[in-house]
């Protein structure tokens, strides 16, 4: 093989000359530091990512939303023979509704980020001046808001099925985003941290199974250690808050407390997801 060191070639000599080793060549020979281009601010960037992700989701995810809804409705029909109304019925309906959120926000988002990372798709975002939080939050918000119709349908069907009042279903307006944030953050983090996309998918499905087991089955019938695991599941507090509102005279302070915990878990899990994104973007 023949090799010409770059230094001996005329072009290279012209390029380097006797200039100092650092400092870019400028017309006037001085050391110029370019003004940096604008940075995308958090909210506009988040809105842009949200809009783009929602349009993706519309095209590709609608059939999956049907699957998620049917699955939850099916579970409630099954559980009708098992639970005997009252508190257990509330837990089943609330759990099944939030399960729709878990399916989309945890399972599908973990898959999405796992594939994006493996296929080099993160490069696109990483070479744009966007705050990492905007990418993660935008995608999470799009996936979460995409679950709203399924959650409502499940909640209404469940309430009718178990003869629960529909009066306070509006609480879902708070439960979906908060549980959605917590689960989406967890899903995104799993997708971004998994070394391989198959593992991301697997982790998403496991998370989904956990949400099913811990969220839908009435807690009173679970062994103690599973009850502890239930307390660790980010969606649990959303389920509890929702379940409380079915009562004849809901304890609003407790509902608020549950939602507060849910919000706290959401912030923490989104922070972890943002950290995972940073880690995945620069290798």
């Amino acid at each position: 093989m023949s090799v010409v060191p770059a230094e001996v070639l005329p072009g290279a000599a012209r390029a380097d000359g006797n200039r100092a080793d650092h400092g870019p060549d400028t017309e006037d020979g001085g050391r110029a530091v370019a003004v940096l281009g604008p940075r995308a601010r958090l909210w506009p960037a988040l809105a842009a990512v949200y809009r783009a992700q929602l349009s993706r989701a519309r095209v590709a995810r609608i059939p999956l939303l049907f699957v998620a809804t049917f699955q939850s409705v099916g579970i409630m029909v099954l559980m009708r023979g098992v639970v005997d109304g009252g508190g257990e019925a509330r837990a089943v309906v609330a759990g099944s509704s939030v399960l729709v959120v878990a399916f989309v926000a945890l399972n599908l988002l973990a898959q999405y980020f796992g594939q994006l990372r493996a296929s080099g798709g993160l490069d696109h975002y990483a070479t744009l001046p966007v705050p990492p939080a905007a990418v993660v939050l935008g995608a999470a918000a799009a996936y979460a808001s995409f679950t709203v119709p399924g959650t409502f349908v499940t909640a209404v069907v469940g309430s009718v099925l178990f003869q629960l009042p529909l009066t306070h279903l509006w609480i879902l307006v708070a439960v979906v985003p908060l549980a959605g944030a917590a689960l989406a953050g967890l899903g995104a983090a799993l997708g971004l941290l998994a070394p391989r996309p198959e593992l991301a998918t697997l982790l998403g499905q496991l998370g989904m199974s956990a949400a099913l087991l811990l969220g839908v089955l009435p807690p009173g019938r679970l062994p103690t250690f599973v009850q502890y695991a239930r307390d660790l599941m980010p969606s649990t507090y959303g389920v509890e808050a929702f379940a409380r509102t079915f009562g004849p005279d809901p304890d609003w302070a407790a509902v608020l407390l549950d939602l507060g915990v849910c919000a706290g878990v959401g912030v923490a899990s989104l922070a972890v997801a943002t950290w995972a994104y940073r880690r995945a973007a620069v290798r």
Binding site: G37, R51, S55, D123, T127
Partner: peptide, 27 residues
């Protein structure tokens, strides 16, 4: 601005939305 050898992040968007979103993310 970087154009990677293969880009998959935008695959499911329309051309118009892909370009507009990238512009917005560039500030």
């Amino acid at each position: 601005a970087y154009l990677g050898q293969e880009s998959t992040a935008l695959d499911e968007l329309t051309v118009s939305l892909a370009v507009e979103t990238t512009g917005r993310l560039r500030g």
